[in-house]
Computed example of a mutant assay.
Amino acid sequence: MVVAQRKFQYEEVQTKEFLQKEKKTIEMNKKSKVKASQKLQIIVSIAVLVGLCIGMIFGYVQLTETKYRIYYLDKEARELSAQIENLKIELESVKKTDIIERQAKEMLGMQYPQKDQTVYLDMGDQPITALKEPAGQTTKTEKGNLLFLLKGIFVKMYALLD
């Protein structure tokens, strides 16, 4: 009888344990089953996250391209600034009279006039206003005159000085 009782208790304990395990598996199956709306929600969330990641990567690509453009424009600005400085230096060298004088002597073979090449004009008592006559109003007697030639030279030199 003791053996029968033990067998009965063993079966009773086993069935209780089996029922409890079965109950737990049923509860777990209910919990582990994901509803269709939850699946859709998960898929949409993942898609949104992927979209955000792609958007961030695209933003960084645009930022990097802009930085490269800025770098190259800055480099070009520095090169142009250096070129401007070189041109300013070259302009200063062209504006200096001693450099102009040296180039005139070396390249063009120019020289200062000597004593025998200098011509002096004597205007006498003629007023300076007489020099401002238009060139077309000369008379026939003046054309052959040495004074007329000297007057023409003086007018041309005076025009160069203006």
Rank of each mutant, 00 (worst) to 15 (best):
M1K: 12
M1N: 09
V3W: 14
Q5E: 02
Q5H: 04
F8C: 11
Q9K: 05
E11K: 08
E12V: 07
L19W: 08
E22N: 08
K23Y: 01
E27H: 10
M28I: 00
N29L: 03
K30T: 00
K31D: 07
S32P: 01
S32F: 15
V34N: 08
K35G: 14
K35D: 15
Q38S: 09
Q38K: 14
K39R: 15
I42Y: 02
I42S: 14
I46V: 14
V48P: 02
L49W: 12
V50N: 12
G51L: 14
C53H: 03
G55C: 08
I57Q: 01
F58Y: 11
Y60T: 13
Q62D: 12
E65C: 08
R69F: 11
I70F: 02
Y72W: 00
A77S: 08
R78I: 03
S81K: 07
I84L: 05
E85M: 04
N86P: 05
I89F: 05
S93N: 15
V94D: 09
K96F: 06
I99F: 02
R102N: 11
A104E: 05
E106C: 10
M107N: 14
L108N: 00
G109K: 02
M110G: 06
Q111D: 10
Y112D: 00
P113G: 01
Q114P: 05
D116L: 06
T118W: 12
T118I: 07
Y120Q: 04
L121E: 05
D122K: 06
M123F: 03
M123K: 13
P127E: 03
A130G: 04
L131M: 00
L131W: 11
K132Q: 09
A135F: 15
T138F: 14
G144R: 01
L146V: 15
L146P: 10
L147K: 07
L149Y: 13
I153G: 03
I153N: 02
F154W: 01
V155E: 13
M157R: 11
L160R: 10
